[in-house]
C-alpha cells in the first residue's frame, strides 16, 4: 500500500465519477443517434419539401424560396381517402397476422411448456433457429413455394378446377403477404406465450378436473385466462413490426398490396417528399405508442396469478 490514498476517502467522489464514466457514453450515443433523429423527424413533419428533395428551410433564406412551418403534410394525409385506406389495410393485415400467429403458436408454446424440463431448451432453440436466418431469405423462401409451378399452387388450382373455378395466382397477392408476415414474426408469439404457460401451476388443472370440468372447459376457464398476459405481449411483438413492414409486401405482394411501410419508403426514396414521409412516420409512431401502451396495460401482472 505504498503511497496509495486510503480508498475509503476517495470512494464518494470515485463512485460519482464511475457512475458518469459508465453511463455517459451509451447515453450520449443514443441521444445523438436515436432521440435527436426522432425529434428531427417530428420537426420535418411540419416543414415544406425542399426544391430538390429534402426539406425547405424553417427560417427565411431571403431568396423567395418556400420556408417555415406548416400543417399541410397532416392536412394532406386527411384530405385523401386513399391514405386512410392504406392505414386501415395495414391494421387489418397486422390484426390477421397476429391472429394467425396466435393460432399457430399456441400449440407449440403449450407443448414446450408441458414437455419434460430437459427437452424444453432444445424445443425453444428449434423455434429460434429458423428465426436466426436472414429475414429476406425467409421471405424469399415463400416466393419459391408460392410460385405458379410449385406443388402448392398446382394443388390449390387443381381443387379450384374441380369446382369449375378459374386458377388463382398465390404469389404477388394479399394471401402471400399474410403468409410472409406470419412466417417472419411467428417466434415473437411463441416465446412470450411459452414463458407464460411454463409458469402455470398444473394443480389448478387437477382441481378443475376434480370439480368435473372437461378438457375444453379446463382450457377455456383456466389455461386461457391465465395465459392472457403472454397473449398480449406476443401480440404486441407481432402487431407492431408488421404495421411498419415494407419488405414483405414489396417482395410477396402485388402492386395493389401497398401498406404504411411502403408508403413511407416511397416518400423518402421514391417521390422524395420528405415532410409527408415524416408526417406518416409520426402518425405510425403514435399508433405504435397507443398499441404498446394498451398491450402493456393488458399484460400487466395481476395479483391473482
Amino acid at each position: 500500500m505504498s503511497g496509495k490514498p486510503d480508498p475509503r476517502h476517495t470512494r464518494p467522489r470515485g463512485a460519482r465519477l464511475t457512475k458518469w464514466v459508465v453511463t455517459a457514453p451509451p447515453t450520449l450515443f443514443l441521444l445523438a443517434f436515436f432521440l435527436a433523429p426522432a425529434l428531427i423527424v417530428l420537426v420535418a413533419s411540419f416543414q415544406y419539401p425542399g426544391e430538390f428533395g429534402g426539406l425547405a428551410p424553417i427560417t427565411n433564406p431571403g431568396d423567395g424560396r418556400e420556408h417555415g412551418l406548416t400543417l399541410e403534410n397532416y392536412a394532406f394525409f386527411f384530405s385523401d381517402f386513399l391514405f386512410a385506406e392504406i392505414f386501415v389495410k395495414s391494421f387489418t393485415v397486422a390484426a390477421l397476422s397476429t391472429l394467425a400467429c396466435l393460432v399457430l403458436a399456441y400449440p407449440v408454446a403449450w407443448l414446450i411448456a408441458r414437455s419434460p424440463r430437459h427437452h424444453r431448451d432444445l424445443l425453444v432453440l428449434l423455434v429460434i433457429l429458423p428465426f436466426a436466418s436472414n429475414f429476406l431469405i425467409r421471405v424469399y423462401a415463400w416466393m419459391i413455394i408460392l410460385g405458379p409451378q410449385q406443388a402448392v399452387a398446382q394443388a390449390v388450382n387443381g381443387v379450384l378446377a374441380l369446382f369449375g373455378l378459374a386458377p388463382v395466382n398465390l404469389l404477388f397477392s394479399p394471401f402471400a403477404v399474410l403468409v410472409g408476415m406470419v412466417y417472419v414474426h411467428l417466434p415473437f408469439m411463441i416465446l412470450p406465450l411459452y414463458t407464460n404457460l411454463e409458469k402455470h401451476d398444473p394443480v389448478l388443472l387437477d382441481a378443475a378436473q376434480d370439480l368435473g370440468a372437461n378438457a375444453w372447459r379446463r382450457f377455456w376457464r383456466v389455461t386461457w385466462p391465465l395465459s392472457l398476459p403472454g397473449v398480449f405481449s406476443g401480440s404486441a411483438l407481432v402487431f407492431i413490426p408488421v404495421l411498419g413492414m415494407f419488405a414483405v409486401p414489396d417482395i410477396l405482394g402485388g402492386t395493389r398490396d401497398m401498406l404504411i411501410g411502403n408508403l413511407i419508403k416511397d416518400q423518402f426514396l421514391g417521390v422524395r417528399d420528405w415532410p409527408f414521409g415524416a408526417a406518416l412516420s409520426i402518425l405510425l409512431t403514435l399508433a405504435v405508442l397507443v398499441l404498446a401502451g394498451l398491450a402493456a396495460w393488458a399484460a400487466r401482472p395481476r395479483g391473482a396469478t
Binding site: 426522432a38 413492414m245 423518402f268 405504435v288
Partner: peptide
C-alpha cells in the same frame, strides 16, 4: 418498427 429508425 425498424422503418422508423431507418428514415429518422
Amino acid at each position: 418498427p425498424e422503418i422508423l429508425l431507418g428514415v429518422s
